[in-house]
Write a protein that binds this DNA or RNA. Structure first.
Length: 837
RNA sequence: GGGAGAGUGGCGAAAUGGCAGACGCGCGGGUCUUAGGAGCCCGUGGAGCAAUCCUUGCGGGUUCGAGUCCCGCCUCUCCCA
């Protein structure tokens, strides 16, 4: 029995050696066929790292080390998503400057990563809140501006009265602020928008080129982009001569046009506002709109909520029939989707059905339910619900008798011909509101000039530095930068007159939309990255991060990648070939870890007690990498035991191993030696396929336990034959290498104790020998009609007949057969023999 | 409401359509020990003295054979509205 394994000293020793060796520095010029860009989502430095980070970066580290042993030129960088609201929250609460809070958290988080011993190329570290980085965030904004992809718009935005700030749609959760969870209201502000909708179709099409992305994320993005094909149809009425009414609706069901019995418009839409001012029932509309404004979108569009609305008193003419159609204002219609108006087809749309019933509006059937559809009789007044499926059209002038599915294109063409409408594709995806009335973000490089309007800051004047002199952090409902005169006051780049800087900062999703480009050339002072460096490394070969970013970051960084390609700065259309989502880390009761529950596990405390290697092993062993895990200290305790057992085993065998050259391949003769070799190669096989595939390292670790469980005592092995001892030497060396990506410090130490020099990560990843996995004989099941009756042993590779013959030697089988002859015998070699009687 | 995923011992889990529960935790027993909350060894899905029977959320189906494939439910989790 060897010494106690001193993980503290050993882990520190190897972390220092790796630094000294520069083991993880990416080559400046990777070999094209060897380049591998491995990336994990960078961290928002809020205090220290949590267990989610530990898992994310632990998986990435193991993969990175595996790649290194496979001779890849690995780019594996790290950085910090360092702008963001929590820093201002800390400033307000504790009076600490957001910069100091952030940089302090980064230092702490970085020391935790160093304690993990992660194989990052720290020379490429980036920090989004530092000028050398955000200079190019501003450069990106100007690129978008040059390409016509940003614009200003006065529009209702989500306003959190508690945080005194504007929120993006994805920052509104269940109608509340994602930070403080107070209700979100609406407010009018002039804001910068990014025209991501210009790329909606390409972002959608690109998904088809990403077979190595999780299907769930592809589906989520498709859903989020939300393409729908249909028609835009105009309903008009003469109205007052100066002010005729004309309402465009978008519908995916033009086949139900003849069933329209009313229109609904959103209260805050242009036509809704006009109705509140000038319609016959203006007063009622205005009152209703005021009430609707107080409701959240979620409330308004919830399917189970009672539908409300008021008649405007206006009527428009049905474009096909000329019939008068009443116009309602209803809050289940949103101004931001489609045209802000929908046609009401109560017979064939669920919400319209409910609304019409409530308002006493007529139903017009234009799609016939098939005969026999329960409840859908000839009398529409008795229908239990709307008939929403397509079907045979009726009461629809030129299209009667046709099937809606088949007729829709013809209807759209006909509408266009008649001048009533046109084909239209809409997307649920909306333009991206990026202005934030906050301090701790990247300043927007635009200048407001009284004569020239809004003028971009020239490239050579970048970065527009964030002033650091602010001391009063309380949000005042305007950007904190508005209160820094020396920041605001500038001159117009065009005319030289006094002008004002834009006082908003950018959504931090902008910072993270291009960071993957910066890593390839992080010290470039003129461009985000050189074309050469981009060509050498892009795209990311494997990107690892949580599934919570499926629709936010993972869409935005695809968008930026496409813009950069269009502008000729890079040559890839998609940022990442493969995306992997690791599972969540829950507490032992299966709950989310959170400060309020007091169930946080601190990675640094854990590593102090158990070591980095044991902590990782525990995490990998809990479950496959993509499944959620419940953290348990018992598991880490067990992993620590495993570390000690591996250490003891290898140190016990140092002498045996030393007697054989490093490339010895065992020629076992005894079955014990064969078992050892098989178990060792099984470890290798499991890890190998995990690293090349699903990153599920749990069964590899199980194989390590199995190997340990059957390993003979060193004292016994001393008496073994030369070939058998060579087998043991081979197996020990194999174990050390195969486990190295998962338990790097331990295996470096063992590699050294076995006489290895340099680093085990400069050793080649071994190839497993399929012959080693084969057994001489196997036990097979003997079944009668699929029920197991007995077990017998056959030689590996025996014929079907030999299997059957071996089975027939079983007394239990013979008595089960009771003298009958099987009608059929199914033999699965090495598995079973099944007699069908 | 829409989308995605998951249901297997006391617990985490494993299983190219082929012996369900590998491996670990926990638990029980043994051993070493002044001691054991360390180490090592043995046992451990359920019922039964036993032969044996039952067992992968529920109900059907396909198949010689289903945890795995198909259809219909139930429950839970995550994401979106």
């Amino acid at each position: 029995m060897g010494d106690r394994y001193d993980f503290t000293a050993t882990e520190r020793k190897w972390q220092e050696r790796w630094d000294a060796l520069g083991l993880f520095l990416a080559p400046e010029k990777p070999r094209p066929d060897r380049a591998f860009y491995l990336l994990e989502m960078f961290a928002y430095p809020s205090g220290d790292l949590h267990m989610g980070h530990f898992r994310n970066y632990g998986i990435g580290d193991a993969v990175g080390r595996f790649l290194l042993m496979n001779g890849k030129d690995v780019l594996h960088p790290f950085g910090w998503d360092a702008f963001g609201l929590p820093a201002e929250g800390a400033a307000i609460k504790r009076g600490v400057h957001p910069r100091d809070w952030t940089l302090g958290n980064i230092a702490q988080s970085k020391s935790t990563l160093k304690a993990m011993g992660i194989a990052y190329d720290w020379s490429r570290e980036i920090t989004t809140c530092l000028p050398d980085y955000y200079k190019f965030t501003q450069w990106m904004f100007l690129l978008l501006h040059r390409r016509g992809l940003v614009y200003r718009k006065n529009a209702p935005v989500n306003w959190c009265g508690t945080c005194n700030t504007v929120l993006a749609n994805e920052q509104v959760e269940q109608g509340t602020c994602w930070r403080c969870h107070n209700p979100v209201a609406k407010r009018e502000l002039e804001q910068w928008y990014v025209r991501i909708t210009d790329y909606a179709q390409r972002l959608l099409d690109g998904l088809d080129t990403l077979p190595q992305w999780p299907a769930s994320t592809l589906a989520a993005q498709r859903n989020w982009i939300g393409r729908s094909e249909g028609a835009e149809i105009r309903f008009a009425a003469p109205g007052p001569a100066a002010n005729p009414i004309s309402i465009e609706v978008f519908t995916t069901r033009p086949d139900t046009l003849w069933g329209v019995t009313f229109l609904s418009v959103a209260p805050e839409s242009e036509i809704g506002r006009r109705a509140a001012a000038t319609a016959p029932n203006a007063a009622a509309v205005a009152a209703y709109a005021a009430e609707a404004e107080r409701r959240t979108e979620i409330e308004r569009t919830a399917a189970d909520r009672e539908k409300t609305g008021v008649a405007t008193g206006w009527h428009v003419a049905h474009p096909c029939t000329g019939a008068p159609i009443p116009v309602y204002v209803a809050d289940y219609v949103l101004a931001t989707y489609g045209t802000g108006a929908v046609m009401g087809v109560p017979a064939h749309d669920e919400r319209d059905f409910v609304f019409a019933r409530k308002m006493g509006l007529p139903l017009q059937v234009v799609v016939l339910p098939p005969t026999g559809a329960e409840g859908f009789t000839g009398d529409v007044a008795t229908w239990p619900t709307a008939w929403t499926a397509p079907g045979v059209m009726t009461a629809s002038a030129p299209f009667d008798g046709r099937h809606s599915d088949e007729a829709i294109p013809a209807i759209v063409a006909w509408l266009a011909e008649q001048g009533f409408g046109r084909p239209k594709v809409t997307f649920k995806l909306r333009d991206w509101l990026i202005s934030r009335q906050r301090y701790w973000g990247c300043p927007i490089p635009m200048i407001h000039c009284a004569t020239c309007g809004v003028v971009p800051v020239p490239d050579e004047q970048l970065p527009v530095l964030l002033p650091e002199t602010i001391t009063n952090w309380i949000p005042k409902g305007r950007s904190p930068l508005a209160d820094v005169p020396e920041f605001v006051a500038t001159t117009c780049p065009k005319c030289g007159a006094a002008a004002q800087r834009d006082v908003d900062t950018m959504d931090t999703f902008i910072d993270s939309s291009w960071y993957h480009l910066r890593y390839v050339d992080p010290r470039n002072t003129t461009l985000p990255c050189s074309r050469e460096a981009a060509d050498a490394w892009l795209p990311i070969d494997l990107y690892i991060g949580g599934p919570e970013h499926a629709n936010g970051h993972c869409l935005y960084f695809r968008f930026f990648t496409k813009v950069m390609k269009d502008a000729g700065y890079i040559d890839v259309d998609e940022p990442a070939v493969r995306l992997f989502h690791h599972g969540m880390v829950l507490d032992p009761q299966g709950r989310r870890m959170s400060k309020s529950l007091g169930n946080l596990v601190s990675p640094i405390d854990m590593m102090r007690e158990f070591g980095s290697d044991a902590s990782r092993i525990a995490m990998f062993f809990f479950a496959p990498s993509d499944a959620a895990i419940s953290w348990s200290e018992d598991g880490v305790q067990g992993a620590k035991k495993l570390v000690q057992r591996v250490f003891d085993l290898v140190t016990d065998f140092v002498d045996v191993v030393a007697a054989f050259p490093v490339d010895v391949v065992g020629a076992p003769s005894s079955s014990s030696a064969k078992d050892v070799r098989r178990a060792a190669h099984e470890v290798l096989r499991r890890f190998d396929s995990a690293f090349r595939g699903d990153l599920a390292l749990n069964t590899g670790i199980a194989a390590v336990y199995e190997l340990l469980n059957l390993f003979p005592k060193a004292a016994d092995v001393a008496a073994w034959s030369q070939g058998d001892r060579a087998t043991v030497a081979e197996s020990i060396r194999l174990l050390v290498k195969a486990l190295a990506p998962v338990a790097p410090h331990l295996c470096e130490e063992l590699h050294e104790r076995l006489g290895g020099t340099g680093s085990v990560f400069r050793e080649a990843w071994p190839t497993f020998d399929p012959a080693a996995l084969r057994r001489d004989e196997v036990e097979i099941a003997v079944q009668v009609n699929g029920k197991i009756k007995a077990r017998v042993t056959v030689a590996t590779g025996a014929t079907d007949a030999a299997h059957e013959a071996a089975a027939m030697t079983s007394d239990v089988l013979l008595s089960s057969l009771g003298g009958k002859t099987a009608k059929r015998v199914v033999v699965v070699k090495g598995r079973l023999v099944n007699f069908i009687v």
